[in-house]
């Protein structure tokens, strides 16, 4: 996975701990988007033909090439379903999240 990861962030205690002006390290993530999901995309690895369409059209970039075709970074998947809708061989199912 070649993407930023969530790091722990401590809120500044003193004014001098703030950055000088509104600029901060790029790719600095403090929280995930997983909580947005009501449906979760699940890849059927047998059906998947590794065409990488889902990887190309995910608006959040959460699908990545893996040793086993493609996988999903569920920390950041919002469950939009673009991948499932775009898959030509119906290898991705949207499954309701259990709360």
């Amino acid at each position: 996975m070649n993407r930023p990861k969530v790091t722990e962030f401590k809120k500044a205690k003193h004014i001098n701990d703030y950055p000088t002006g509104p600029g901060f390290q790029g790719g600095h993530l403090v929280d995930k988007n997983a909580g947005w999901r009501t449906f979760r995309p699940v890849i059927d690895k047998d059906a998947c033909v590794n065409c990488l369409i889902c990887y190309m059209i995910c608006p959040d970039g959460t699908i990545y090439k893996s040793d086993d075709k493609v996988d999903i970074d569920y920390d950041f998947c919002k469950g939009c379903g673009v991948c499932a809708n775009g898959c030509n061989v119906n290898a991705i199912k949207m499954v309701k999240e259990e709360l």
Binding site: N2, P4, N33, W36, P59, D60, G61, F76, C80
Partner: peptide, 27 residues
Amino acid sequence: AKNITDKEYFYGHKACAGCGGSLAVRQ
């Protein structure tokens, strides 16, 4: 899809689910 970099440059953003603009930026 095969030769484009694996690295993601627009990640963890708060666009609505399914936002087309964010896909354009990402790619």
